[in-house]
Design a protein around this nucleic acid. Structure first.
Lengths: 159, 159
DNA sequence: AACTTGTTGACTTATTTTGACCATGTCTTA
DNA sequence: TAAGACATGGTCAAAATAAGTCAACAAGTT
């Protein structure tokens, strides 16, 4: 039993694979009708599944002939992608956010499952030592986690 | 005298052997109901028996259509090899020895070049923080490096 | 007895679904 | 061409649903 949000999200993904361009255009109202839901559900799908963090950009227009355009981000080179990753992690990141980011990166094929496992073990190790050995406050642990994650992801992006 | 935790853990293991994939999805609520326990017992089972250090990755979602997905990345028959690795690393290891070990493991195909890179980044990061941030003595840094390396290698031990 | 592992439940946080109300376009017509 | 009708999309919050955390207590081990 899959959620409506997942079904709609998957449908949008198929639109991308059917399209030669890395960009699709759709009507919120039509999509909502197709899936028998309220229009604002589409906004929720976009917000939760097609965010910049997940590699998408969205443009839209209201009124007659309104539309929603979803663009898949492309990165020219490693440096650009590394920069993108650094922006995602920022200065501090919680355990939960970090884990979620790794899930997304694995799903996008940026890292393998083994690499994700490795990263999780490294992050958990640091977390535990920060907490138990040095009694660091939560925010400090979040910044240290961000530092480690950025170093790892950037080095992988460049490899 | 078998604890509920063990029973549930064993049950989850059978789910893996019944499944062709190395990944299963379950509902916390259902599982708790099946074994007549509180839902949070399931979290305990996962924490104590299916951690990244034990070769498992967990992804979960709260709210409507929530789920828990468990990925198994290693299989039971590598305990011996894991022990071997622990013996290699011992209680303390220098930066140089660690790097040499990683080179050997990569040459033997135990880890990929990217995985080796990842490990080296994690080790360097820990080294730097131990030195700069906490002013740890060399021996302490060597033991911490050994701990991290062992955790990582054991969790990856497979092939 | 001290320590580790397991069990429980109250409280917290996150996700999905829905709908009422808001904002901004285009089109028609006086 | 200005006003109003019509057509879209956006925002926000409530309700329903489900998972996570934490700490106290219990049971088992050493």
């Amino acid at each position: 039993m899959s959620s409506l949000t997942k079904v709609i999200g998957d449908y949008i993904v198929t639109l991308f694979s059917d399209s030669p361009k890395s960009e699709i255009v759709l009507r919120r109202k039509d999509l909502a009708e197709k899936f028998g839901c309220v229009p604002s559900q589409i906004n929720y799908v976009l917000r939760s599944r097609f965010s910049p963090e997940q590699g998408f950009l969205i443009q839209s227009q209201r009124g007659g002939h309104g539309f929603i355009r979803i663009m898949q981000l492309r990165f020219g080179d490693c440096d650009e992608y590394a920069e993108h990753l650094e922006e995602l992690v920022r200065d501090a990141i919680s355990e939960q956010e970090a884990r979620r980011l790794m899930v997304i990166l694995q799903e996008r094929g940026v890292v393998s499952p083994r690499e994700r496992l490795l990263v999780e073990v490294a992050l958990r190790n640091q977390e535990e030592q920060g907490r138990v050995l040095f009694d660091l406050p939560p925010y400090k642990r979040d910044t240290m986690r961000a530092d480690l994650l950025k170093k790892i992801l950037v080095s992988l992006a460049m490899s």
